[in-house]
C-alpha cells in the first residue's frame, strides 16, 4: 500500500490518507480481502503518530472500507458495498465540479465545455467499440 503525505499542504494528514486508500480501492489497486498494515506498522512506515493512523483506520472502518478481525489483522472489506459505489460517484462529482470551476476561471463558456465533454465521451466510446 503505497501512500504519500504532503505535510505542508494544509490538508489534514488523515484526510489525505483516507482519500488515497479510497482511491486505491476504487481503482482496484487494493483488492477486497487484501490485508493492509497494522496501525503501528503504517505509523512507522509513514513516520506519523500512531494516534493519527488509528484515527484514519477508525474512519475507514466506519465507512466499511476496511475491517479489522481480532487477532488476524486489518483487511479491505469483501464484496462491493453500496457505499463504495456512492463514494465513486462522489469522487466523480467532485472532479466534475473542479472541471466546471476551472473552465469558468479561464472564461471557457459552458456550451464549449459541454462540447468538449461530449467529444471526449465519443472518443472513448469509439475506442471501446473497436476493441
Amino acid at each position: 500500500m503505497y501512500l504519500t503525505i504532503e505535510h505542508n499542504s494544509g490538508v489534514p494528514v488523515s484526510a489525505q490518507i483516507v482519500a488515497q486508500v479510497k482511491y486505491l480501492v476504487i481503482s482496484g489497486q487494493l483488492e477486497p480481502g487484501e490485508r493492509i498494515p497494522s496501525v503501528r506498522a503504517l505509523a512507522r512506515e509513514l513516520k506519523v503518530n500512531p494516534t493519527t493512523v488509528a484515527r484514519i483506520y477508525r474512519q475507514l472502518e466506519a465507512e466499511e472500507i476496511i475491517c479489522t478481525q481480532a487477532g488476524r489483522g486489518t483487511f479491505i472489506t469483501q464484496g462491493r458495498s453500496s457505499l463504495t459505489l456512492a463514494e465513486k460517484r462522489r469522487q466523480i462529482v467532485a472532479r466534475v465540479r473542479e472541471l466546471v470551476v476551472e473552465s469558468g476561471r479561464i472564461n471557457l463558456d459552458y456550451t464549449e465545455l459541454r462540447k468538449l465533454v461530449e467529444m471526449e465521451i465519443a472518443r472513448i466510446e469509439q475506442k471501446e467499440s473497436r476493441s
Binding site: 505535510h7 505542508n8 503501528r40 505509523a43 512507522r44 513516520k47 506519523v48 503518530n49 500512531p50
Partner: peptide, 24 residues
C-alpha cells in the same frame, strides 16, 4: 517519530521553524 511509535515516548519540542516540525 520512531521513538513515539516504538517506545510510547512523549515529546515536547520548542521551535520557531514551523515547516520542519509540521512533519512530526
Amino acid at each position: 517519530v520512531d521513538l513515539v511509535n516504538d517506545r510510547d515516548m512523549t515529546v515536547l519540542m520548542a521551535s520557531h521553524i514551523l515547516s520542519d516540525v509540521e512533519r512530526v
